[in-house]
Each structure stands twice: as structure tokens, then as C-alpha cells.
Design a binder for these strands. Structure first.
Length: 471
RNA sequence: GGCGACAUAGCCAAGUGGUAAGGCAGCGGUCUGCAACACCUCCAUCACCAGUUCAAAUCUGGUUGUCGCCUCCA
């Protein structure tokens, strides 16, 4: 366990960087608000998934045992609307897009959560918590709807730094007459015609959005968790309301650290369907390997807004290729170099790489500064490209290969798939091209190269031999 | 209207008091049958104004600009 160096993370609750100390030593309980599944996930959904997956990987790297929970909201107005449009049940829609979301997540190299709860499978727990809140006086029922009595929770607004008076002044929606107070929010609402519903003491209906996360977090992680994360738009009202519900019901602090990622914009504008600047992860995957999207997302700090564009994807693709090329190169060197004692310069290099790893960790320890961490990888790539060759000691080559790959894996920006790509046909063609080159038949050689290019294989003649990669 | 964030090269992006990391693109080279890869070289004084300090991109005040939340949008 390498927790000697502490992690500092920015806590929305205190608006400052704090040293990370877990509730229980060596263990991290982490909850990340997941998507509402009414369509393929979009690239905006992908940002928190990628960012917090990276956080999770790093915490595990540091030796923590991480219990990572991320939900699917599978009952919601948008899902019902889509279901009605297609003339199918709401669950048919949600089930379908959960499957699709999981596919995209796998391609984004996002590790499966310890648990992926679904709201509709946790209704019983939600009813229990609402009952509890009503008993404790923090909630009430009116006409089949259960409301949370916001004013009874003294600390309401502590996350978003809003106070009830300001909020009330800013109210822009029609306030239900039933509410005791305009700031009260819904815990349970009765069904409308044609909507899915569950039985409850108050009405046939369904839970409000906020109660879902409070209940799922408690069930799978306990009443006090370490990290609660999500997009910054969730700070208010979603997370504020979660705090109110959970802390009112459980009588203790809900989450120690609140992490929020900034938004992803398109051409400096918020992505939205109505603006026509909306991209699903699936669409992007048709043009780029999703590692590129992941790399792009991690190339800025998670609390800074990032702007998505084709140009930046191209830039990211080229940058990532530089790293991948270096790793492939090292891998080949491991096959042709010889085992021998390290000479003095190599010992120095070994030391240098150790320093780079430290630097990488320092960056990640500082509120998960992935942009800085990536720059360290580039520095390692540079040194590797410049100083290592087929005369180097195998030991050093292997170490360097492992070091760089480990850090890249930590960020999830590389996948190990090359083996499956190797097939007989490609190897034969490469061999034929070599023969042609030997015979100085460059026309033939170029033809074969073009043929391979059509199949998506790029050939490179390097000092150490032929190399190929997927376009 | 209330609350908040941000402003670093053509593009992206680190850096929060000691004199500007890294990547992409571009220029000029080396290597190469060619191409690609790789390597070498070049490419900014940090929105503006004023202040604090021996010293500021980094702190303070102001100006301008961009963006977000206050609408069950990540």
C-alpha cells in the first residue's frame, strides 16, 4: 500500500483541496451518479464516467480497496416519453439502453462498478426511507405525493452555497399549491395515466429522482460514504437534496468528499439536442477508437470545462499515437535485446524513470491532475525514444515498457488487443512486401503497402524492423 | 435578478510568489527506395489597468470578455 503520500482532492463542500482520509482505513466507498437510460449515452455522460473511473483506478493503484457504485436511473419522464413514442414499455427502453451503455463503457475502457444498481429494483428501500423521513417529521404526504420539508433541514444549501431565501427569490416554475413551502421537493409522486407505477402507502406511483441515489448509496455503501461524485450540474438540486434526505434520515454526515466534473461543451456551447450539437458515444466510436475520446477527456483537468471538436479529436489521436508507437517499439525491443548487466548510463536512466513515476504520482495526488500526469508520460516516451535501442539491456527495456504501460493503463488510455489483430494474411503480405523490397521491386512493395492500408494496416519500416499498426 | 467559475502561443493545456511543463499543428534539417515513425532545431512573457513585494502568470482591487447553476440536462 503506497499511501505514504497523501492524496489531496477538491471538495465541493468546503470549496478547497483537502487531504483524503477515508472513513475506514484502506477502504473507499464511492458513489457516482449514473445516466438516465433513455438513449445511447452521449459524450457529456462519458466525461464523469471516464474521470471517476480514472479516480477509482488511481485509488486502487494506491492500495485502497474501492467499493464503487454507479446507478442507472431507469424510470423517468424521458424514458416514459420515449416508450410511448415507440409504443413499448418503459422497462423495454431502459433495459435496451442499459445494455448499450455497458457496451460503450466497455469500449471507453471503464471498469465495471462493484455494483450497478437500477432504481426500479430498489423501490422498496425508497419507500422505507420516505416512511422514515415522514416519521421523523422531515417529510409529509399531500394528495398522494410525498414531499421533503426542506426548512426542517437546517443545513440545506451547504453544498451549493445557496440559502433558502435566495432560492425562493429565484424560483421560475409554477409552485404546486399542495406544498407547505415552495422549496419542498418531491419524494414520491402518483402516477399519471399510462405511466409505470409501484404500490406505496401514499399512492400508486413512483419515486422522485433524488431519493433514488440516497437509498442506493446507503444500501450498497452504508450511511456514511467517502466520495460522492457526478457532473457539476448535479450540485443543485440533486446532490443538495440527497444530502438533506440522507442526513435527515441517517442522522450523520452522508459523504465526506463531493467531487464534481465540469461540463463538456461543443464549440463553447452546452451540448443539447435542440442546438443540434449533440453527439452520442456510439457516433464518435464510428470515427475514432474510444481510447482517443478517453485521452481527450483526460487531457484537461476534470474541474475545467472542455470543448469538444473534430480538430481536438484529431490532435488527441495523433498525440495518443505517439505514446502507442513508443510502447510498441519497446515491446519489440524486449524481443531482440539481450540480457546483460546495466552499464552506468543505464543505471542513471533507471533512476530517471523512477523520478518520472514519482512525478506522475505527485500530479495524480494533486486532485487527480491527469493533464499533468499525461505530460509526464510524454517525457518518459521522449527519453525512451532517445536513449533506448537494441543495444540496451533487456532488463532496462522491460522495466521501461512495464513502467510506461502501467501508467497508461492507470489512465485507461491503452488496451491490450494487438494479439488478436495478428492474422496470417497480414503477416504473409508483409513477408511478400519484404521480398519485393529485397528485389528492389518498389512498385510491387508499394502496391502491397496500399493493399494493407485499405485493410486498415499501416506499415512502418523502422531501424529495428517492420512495424505495423491499425489505422 | 441571485450565486459561482474561468481568461496562458495557431490549437489544446500544466504551472498559485522566484523568473513560462507537455502535446497537436507549422518552419528548417537528419534518417529513409519512397512514405511513415523517430531524432535535432525554431515558435509566448501569461485579457487589460492599477496596487502589494527585492521578486507576480501566480496575491489585492477594478475593467472587459466567456461560461455555468438557480428548470428531475453529466
Amino acid at each position: 500500500m503506497n499511501q505514504a503520500k497523501p492524496i489531496k482532492l477538491y471538495n465541493t463542500l468546503s470549496k478547497s483541496k483537502e487531504e483524503f482520509v477515508t472513513v475506514e482505513e484502506g477502504k473507499v466507498r464511492m458513489y457516482v451518479c449514473g445516466p438516465t437510460v433513455y438513449n445511447y449515452i452521449h459524450i457529456g455522460n462519458a466525461r464523469p464516467m471516464i474521470v471517476f473511473d480514472t479516480v477509482r483506478r488511481y485509488l486502487e493503484y494506491k492500495g485502497y480497496d474501492v467499493n464503487y457504485v454507479s446507478n442507472f436511473t431507469d424510470v423517468d419522464d424521458k424514458i416514459i416519453k420515449k416508450a410511448n413514442e415507440e409504443g413499448v414499455s418503459a422497462s423495454e427502453i431502459s433495459e435496451r439502453f442499459i445494455i448499450e451503455a455497458k457496451k460503450d463503457m466497455e469500449d471507453l475502457n471503464i471498469l465495471p462498478a462493484t455494483t450497478h444498481p437500477k432504481a426500479t429494483e430498489e423501490i422498496e428501500g425508497m419507500i422505507e426511507m420516505i416512511k422514515d423521513l415522514i416519521e421523523k417529521g422531515y417529510a409529509y404526504e399531500k394528495g398522494g405525493t410525498a414531499y421533503f420539508r426542506t426548512r426542517f433541514f437546517n443545513e440545506y444549501g451547504k453544498l451549493s452555497k445557496k440559502n433558502l431565501e435566495e432560492l425562493e427569490a429565484g424560483i421560475r416554475i409554477a409552485v404546486s399549491e399542495e406544498k407547505e413551502d415552495s422549496m419542498d421537493f418531491v419524494l414520491w409522486k402518483p402516477k399519471k395515466e399510462g405511466e409505470p407505477y409501484w404500490e406505496s402507502p401514499w399512492s400508486k406511483g413512483r419515486p422522485g429522482w433524488h431519493i433514488e441515489c440516497s437509498v442506493m448509496a446507503k444500501k450498497y455503501l452504508g450511511s456514511k460514504i467517502d466520495i460522492h461524485a457526478g457532473g457539476e450540474d448535479l450540485v443543485f438540486p440533486h446532490h443538495e437534496n440527497e444530502i438533506a434526505q440522507s442526513e435527515a434520515a441517517n442522522g450523520e454526515e452522508f459523504a465526506k468528499y463531493w467531487l464534481h466534473n465540469a461540463f463538456l461543451n461543443i464549440d463553447n456551447k452546452k451540448m443539447s439536442k435542440s442546438e443540434g450539437n449533440f453527439f452520442t458515444v456510439r457516433e464518435i466510436s464510428e470515427k475514432y477508437p474510444l481510447q482517443v475520446l478517453r485521452f481527450f477527456m483526460l487531457s484537461a483537468h476534470y474541474r475545467s470545462p472542455i470543448n469538444f471538436s473534430k480538430e481536438l479529436m484529431e490532435s488527441s489521436k495523433n498525440a495518443l499515437d505517439r505514446i502507442l508507437t513508443a510502447i510498441n517499439h519497446l515491446e519489440e525491443l524486449t524481443k531482440i535485446t539481450e540480457e546483460k548487466p546495466l552499464v552506468e548510463d543505464e543505471l542513471k536512466l533507471q533512476e530517471e524513470f523512477k523520478n518520472y513515476i514519482n512525478k506522475f504520482e505527485d500530479s495524480m495526488d494533486d486532485d487527480f491532475n491527469t493533464a499533468d500526469a499525461i505530460s509526464v508520460i510524454f517525457e518518459m516516451v521522449k527519453v525512451s525514444n532517445t536513449k533506448l535501442n537494441k543495444e540496451s539491456s533487456k532488463t532496462l527495456i522491460e522495466e521501461t515498457y512495464n513502467n510506461i504501460s502501467t501508467l497508461c493503463n492507470l489512465l485507461g488510455i491503452i488496451t491490450k488487443k494487438k494479439e488478436e489483430l495478428l492474422d496470417k494474411e497480414i503477416e504473409d503480405l508483409i513477408e511478400q512486401r519484404q521480398q519485393a523490397r529485397k528485389n528492389k521491386d518498389f512498385n510491387q512493395a508499394d502496391q502491397i503497402r496500399n493493399l494493407l492500408l485499405e485493410k486498415g494496416i499501416i506499415i512502418e519500416d523502422t531501424r529495428e524492423g517492420i512495424r505495423w499498426k491499425r489505422a
